[in-house]
Design a protein around this nucleic acid. Structure first.
Lengths: 146, 146
DNA sequence: GCTTGATCTAAAGTGAACTTGAGAAATGAG
DNA sequence: CTCATTTCTCAAGTTCACTTTAGATCAAGC
């Protein structure tokens, strides 16, 4: 067997990540390559899956530390079980739903703004809080809190 | 008239931002306070609105530079016109729609994953690309590209 | 075997978005 | 007027997520 597993370059090409980024992710426990005789990293398909997962979770706004935390339950050197994925994707699904809801709420409020022009400061749910509701200490975050 | 306008502390309380953050935003052209006799910043309601706008846009993932760019069309020391808000909120609306669509696509693919367990690598649209479609260089980003 | 290209390590650099710190001056309730 | 609080400036520090650099070693096609 001339070569076992994927090189870091292979992984970079397949994921679209920079080689340096993959090494960086390793320091955060996202991937766990083994080393060949010459000291080069060798990856398996599970690492590809872990990187894909990390990239997606990042797009959702999760910091690397959180992503790594989600991953700590996963087996390191073999493919995760169906139960593993179910647990993680269920959590992710909840996160996605929350984000979608928040964005829709924002959009709907914004739609009202387009109509009202946000000048009267009377009917605009998106910009009103900071003027007419200032006393209760809620700024725009009453709309955008997670 | 003992005091005209809001102090930076008032603004901080109303927006929930740190005083230092508001000063920082000033260097990026998000707010444009005037100075009183003692050199202290004084803000108007329009600054509150601009900060609210900035906070919301940031939650949407826009960098400060983009937000500031959106703002350059707005009048600095008076309330923006209806046309101003319409232009900006229309652009924002498009951005929101795009983000909502991307997240929904992600969620729907993830739903498939919950069922399939992502182990067969055959039917999973979310994790499959990196394995069976590796040759075309598309990693997970085919799903998550903006 | 040689040479080109990939990979190695460790440390330093980058950019975004703020925060912290220090010392001084302004504000405002009593 | 006094004094605690707030604000001022501005340089430096912080965190996150990486990238860049340098010099050395490894892998692989001819």
């Amino acid at each position: 067997m001339p070569q076992t597993g994927l090189t870091i370059g292979d992984l970079a090409r397949r994921t679209g990540l920079a080689v340096s980024a993959i090494r960086f992710y390793e320091t955060h426990g996202i991937v766990h390559p083994v080393r060949n005789a010459g000291g080069h990293r060798r990856y398996g398909a599970h690492d590809l899956r872990r990187l894909s997962f990390a990239m997606i979770a990042q797009k959702l706004g999760l910091p690397l530390s959180d992503i790594a935390a989600h991953m700590t339950g996963l087996p390191i050197h073999k493919a995760p079980s169906k139960t593993d994925w179910t647990r993680i994707s269920t959590a992710m699904r909840a996160d996605l739903d929350a984000r979608i809801t928040a964005l829709e709420r924002l959009r709907d409020n914004l739609d009202g703004c387009i109509g009202c022009g946000c000048l009267s400061l009377e009917a605009c749910a998106l910009y009103n809080p900071d003027d007419t509701r200032a006393s209760d200490g809620t700024g725009p975050r009453m709309l955008i809190d997670d």
